[in-house]
Amino acid sequence: MVGTGKDTPSPNATAAAAGAVRPGRLIDSPPTAAAPHGALLAITAVKPAGQDTVEVSTRPATISELLGQTWANIKRALDPHQIQITPQLKNLKATYVPNPDGADASASAALELDMSDAVPLPGGAQAALNGSLELDPSVMFSYQGSRGMLAPEQARVGFDLGAHARWHLTAGLTGSTGRVKIPVATLTASPVVMVGQVPVVITLNVTLCAEVSADGTVTVDTTQAIDGNWAIHADYTKTAGWTSTTEPVATTISPVNASINGHASVRTGLEADGSVALYDALGVKATVEPYLRADVDGTVSIDSANRVPTVQGQARLYGGLDVNGAVLARIAVLGTPLAEHDIPFPVYHHEWPILTRQFALPGAQPAR
């Protein structure tokens, strides 16, 4: 929609349209088939095109032009029924789980994805994946306008991703595989939030993948559970410019049942690659990956019903969380001068021990 377009009014509306379509006027469009992420444009020129039509030239407009001196602080939970789901596994089923505690920051239902599939791995191996993933995403937008139209005093755009996942992965891995991603689904939503009387389109995209990697020869049969809540946002102030923040409110990773056999370093995880943007132009993108990592030389077996793991050889298990991403800078959508590239933010990495190294000798009990 950026550039030159044509608007064809009805004959009775020609005079009114001629007055409404004029240079300087803003076009603030909700999502449509032609502009699935909405459109924020400013009319730069209007000229007759014949047969009661006009030819309109436009440029990208800024949020500051749209909102001016408005103040807003919005956090909106996404209605899961309005999330478009594109399955990446053959057997993926979507259901909606009622949330009795649904409030402003929590939807009345959560989206649950049930998965089951076998996927090929490098070297001719195969992994079997099944489990469920429950998501409770929300988007956030705050804005504090200032006098004039150059830039706001401050602004924030971001997303909050709450997730509960449980999945069972079995695989035989040989050599250095690198990180193998198993795509699960892509989720897209474009909610419209009202800032006073003005609609603002926020676009959220999330791609979900299971991930497995190994350096060595190992067989893996593990059932994992992950609970987490992660807030990712980009912030702007006149004094500091753009910064980004990761807020891992909570992350719990539990190897409910795991059997790992071989000599290798192996890692399994769940990756959420998400972005949120105003009119698909400025915002923040991030990859959130909670994972389980194991260094094994021998056999380790963990059963949630037995507090003492069985280890033959030696093993270390760790839970971890990686977050990396960037501020999306496509146009000067806030009126601030921005380069046409992404601005990376510092990587967040945290890892903690679940099981320290253990030995089991013949006839001896395993040590804790």
Rank of each mutant, 00 (worst) to 15 (best):
A214D: 03
S176P: 08
N205D: 14
T174P: 01
E211M: 15
A210R: 09
G178F: 03
T188P: 06
P183F: 06
V180D: 01
D215Q: 15
G216T: 09
T174K: 06
D215A: 15
V184K: 03
G216V: 07
V198Y: 00
V201M: 10
V201F: 08
I202F: 05
A165P: 04
L187Y: 02
V184S: 06
A185K: 01
G172A: 12
V184R: 03
S213H: 10
S176C: 07
E211G: 13
V212D: 01
A171T: 01
V201K: 06
G196N: 03
V192G: 10
V201A: 10
K181T: 07
L169K: 08
V201Y: 06
P199M: 11
V180I: 05
T177L: 04
S190R: 11
T177E: 02
V184T: 12
M194D: 06
A189T: 10
T174I: 05
W167S: 12
P199E: 06
P199K: 11
V201C: 11
V193R: 07
A171S: 07
A189S: 14
I202W: 00
H168Q: 14
A185L: 04
C209H: 13
V184I: 15
A185D: 02
V212G: 05
V195H: 02
T174Q: 08
L187A: 06
L208E: 09
S176I: 12
V180K: 00
L208F: 12
G172W: 04
V180H: 00
V195K: 01
N205M: 13
G196S: 02
V180N: 02
G175S: 03
V206W: 01
S190H: 14
V206N: 13
A214S: 13
S190C: 12
A189F: 04
T207W: 04
C209L: 13
G178D: 03
A210T: 13
G172L: 10
V212N: 00
A185S: 07
A189I: 05
T203K: 13
G196M: 01
M194K: 07
